[in-house]
Design a protein around this nucleic acid. Structure first.
Lengths: 222, 222
DNA sequence: CCAAAAGTGTTTCGCTTACACCCATGG
DNA sequence: CCATGGGTGTAAGCGAAACACTTTTGG
């Protein structure tokens, strides 16, 4: 409650686990550090909390800088405070996860990042700091949320087929789903609209679906 | 990731939402502040993170100081970083909830606390800082955990009747449960052992049950 | 034309819910 | 002895899970 003599004023950062779905795989946006410590290593994009800013605002700022998106789902996962998690000085970090659509937002490398690209979650390299753990924890949290709420539609483009939605669910959850049961469940959602279009260039002639964002927001805010 | 010129080094505290069960009600341990800000107000016990300490260690230290317990369930709930949440200077806090058995541990008022007592969760006074929100969030998290894991037994004494367990569940969840369904569910737990003792001083002659802590730990660590 | 993916219903299973009577004890 | 709480089983409902064939299309 109070800062006593032996208490510590630590720097505080927000790190973002930015999930996207592209090429039939769940992906995460990583940046490559240009400066020590961990220069050359891949890490989660993050930034220091500023003077009059909440941590969530910090995370939104990072998100805007890196992928230029606003108004996305952003959820706090946890706070990491191991005194040695940063090799140079004490830095506490709070992680958030965000769901975005990679197609619309090319990542940009800025600040201390040399490079910023999407990586398949199933094949991320070893990350700097304790970011492997942050990523694992965020992925677990996403799975937990996805099992109770239809969150995944935030990751899908304007038009998509039910099979694409199923591949996304399967990739996040890490398990195979029954096609008929999955489709029945989705068709029960009132925010899912069948269009008259079909996807070309793929066999079977699958119908395209779209999201009524108003109804989706209502379903997510229970 | 880095401390830039306009970033802020804030004090960081851990606040504990210590739940206990006594007199047939879910309770929470609160302390009354002896010093400004919020002198005289009830708040959650908390303390500043020290130099070589994780936030969880801070929470455990507070817990030990306040109720003298070790080895309890301690779960991180969230981090609160509104720049104005502390009226004097910037303090970020991370909250944890803990489950303890009030009988064995008399609360002690120490440090900046004038008084420390158990309050029924259903009738807590207005708290200082943003602790009303911390308490609400922690209670919601406890409910979430309780619905998926048999956590509540950490709150019960060595010997208890099934009715007592039911009252605890009902008080945490805020809803009434069917007695037969509840008992069937509990009797399915392998860590619950029926004893030969019965509780005296109460009508009906109810059997007392005990917990096999090894099996409980196994069940909780799925 | 054929290989690959889309599309479609019904049955089974397990869990959750609802519900009422007799027994044991304290006062 | 009686009022209060303890103790017990069964049937119905609901959502999840299992399962196979026909249609459409790209190549």
């Amino acid at each position: 409650m109070r800062v006593t003599p032996s208490s510590v004023a630590s720097a505080h950062t927000a790190d973002c686990v930015i999930f996207g779905f592209a090429d039939k795989e769940l992906r995460v946006l990583l940046v490559r550090r240009a400066v020590p410590p961990f220069a050359g290593d891949w890490v989660l994009p993050g930034g220091a909390m500023m003077d009059r800013e909440t941590l969530e605002e910090t995370a939104r700022r990072v998100l805007l800088d890196m992928v230029g998106v606003k108004n996305v789902t952003l959820r706090q996962v946890g706070t990491y405070s191991d005194p040695d998690r940063h090799p140079v000085r004490r830095v506490v970090t709070t992680s958030f996860y965000a769901l975005v659509q990679p197609k619309h937002h090319a990542p940009e490398a800025r600040g201390h990042a040399r490079e910023a690209t999407w990586h398949a979650v199933s094949a991320v390299p070893n990350l700097g700091f304790d970011h492997d753990r942050l990523l694992r924890d965020a992925h677990q949290r996403l799975i937990l949320h996805l099992r109770t709420r239809p969150l995944a539609f935030e990751l899908l483009p304007e038009r998509f087929t039910l099979t694409e939605a199923q591949l996304l669910y399967e990739d996040i959850l890490g398990e195979e789903l029954d096609r008929r049961n999955f489709r029945r469940k989705l068709q029960g959602y009132d925010f899912l609209m069948e269009t008259t279009e079909i996807r070309s260039g793929v066999k079977g002639g699958p119908k395209l679906y779209a999201i009524d964002h108003g109804l989706l927001a209502a379903a997510l805010s229970d």
